[in-house]
């Protein structure tokens, strides 16, 4: 009886183990099936590289949305990567233990805040800041609802991802290696730069790529501050319209316009594939790093 139960449990668990792979497959396949309606009539290149977005006329160029996503994400990373890596350097190499321990809940909490809360905060603080302070400084006019506002909010949202992974990478560098550099008379910073950063370079790259894929798919917070104008943005102070925002904003009406549904699903499919690509890339690098450490 006990053995039977064991055998049953084993069989059931084996099924569950297939679930993650199955789900990934299902998601991609599901989105693909749903976007077939438009992929059948429009060439993919036209969908991806045309900036004509006129759903009522049946034109579904996704270029403005793809560029919007890329702009916002790149802006976010340019802001987030240096700050996150420096913060991780401080926490791992310079800070006393109580600071390091105290910083962990802060990073966790930052990661745990719902994106809609970030969005509300962005609307209250970041949008006016960009519109009333940064734009005049740059000599342009902007409502504040802009790529830059989206980038700032998104940067703060990606801090925890990058910091967390970078800290793990730094922790995997043996203390004895730091000692070896220090005992040659190198300063902390020289040791960090030549030894810790070099040893952790791949891991830091992976952390940034992971941050990128996280930022790329973020929806609500960006949607609330980025302005949502379906045109290719020309500057940081222009409004943009990222892919996730497009999907989120138009779901209600999509049933009434033919092939609109399929166009949005294509957008979701493109988004998924890009995110998955970078995600897989980052994981691969991390696995390599982990293997090398052991």
């Amino acid at each position: 009886m006990r053995l039977l139960k064991d055998a049953l449990a084993r069989r059931a668990m084996g099924l569950v183990a297939a679930l993650p792979a199955l789900l990934v497959l299902l998601i991609v396949a599901g989105l693909f099936l749903k976007s077939k309606a438009i992929l059948a009539v429009e060439p993919l290149s036209k969908l991806l590289f045309s900036s004509a977005w006129h759903p009522l006329k049946g034109e579904f160029g996704l270029l403005p949305f793809i560029t919007g996503t890329v702009w916002v994400t790149v802006t976010a990373l340019v802001l987030a990567v240096p700050v996150s890596i420096l913060a991780a350097i401080y926490l791992s190499e310079y800070a006393p233990r109580w600071v390091r321990e105290g910083a962990k809940p802060v990073v966790d909490l930052l990661a745990g805040l719902p994106s809609v809360v970030y969005g509300v905060w962005g609307v209250i603080l970041v949008v006016p800041f960009v519109g009333n302070v940064l734009a005049p400084l740059a000599g342009v006019h902007s409502s504040g609802y802009s790529i830059l506002a989206g980038g700032i909010v998104l940067a703060i949202m990606t801090f925890p991802t990058i910091i967390h992974v970078t800290l793990e990478v730094f922790a995997s560098v043996p203390q004895a290696l730091r000692d070896a550099s220090l005992s040659l008379g190198a300063t902390r910073w020289e040791t960090t730069r030549h030894v810790v950063l070099r040893k952790g370079a791949q891991g830091i790259l992976a952390a940034s790529v992971l941050g990128f894929s996280r930022a790329f798919g973020e929806t609500m917070a960006v949607l609330m501050v980025v302005g949502n104008v379906p045109a290719v943005p020309r500057s940081l102070f222009d409004a943009g319209y990222p892919l996730p925002a497009l999907i989120a904003n138009n779901y209600g009406e999509m049933m009434s316009v033919p092939s609109y549904d399929a166009a949005l699903m294509t957008a979701a499919l493109v988004l998924t594939l890009i995110v998955l690509f970078f995600n897989v890339l980052a994981r691969r690098i991390l696995v390599r790093v982990e293997r090398r450490v052991r």
Binding site: A176, L177, D179, A180, S181, S183, L184, V195
Partner: peptide
């Protein structure tokens, strides 16, 4: 401290080659 350390060379238990 860097001057003190420069006066001494350290060999550790396991060799710690720098990543270069």
């Amino acid at each position: 401290v860097t001057r003190i350390r420069k006066k001494m060379g350290l060999l550790s238990q396991r060799p710690q080659v720098l990543p270069m």
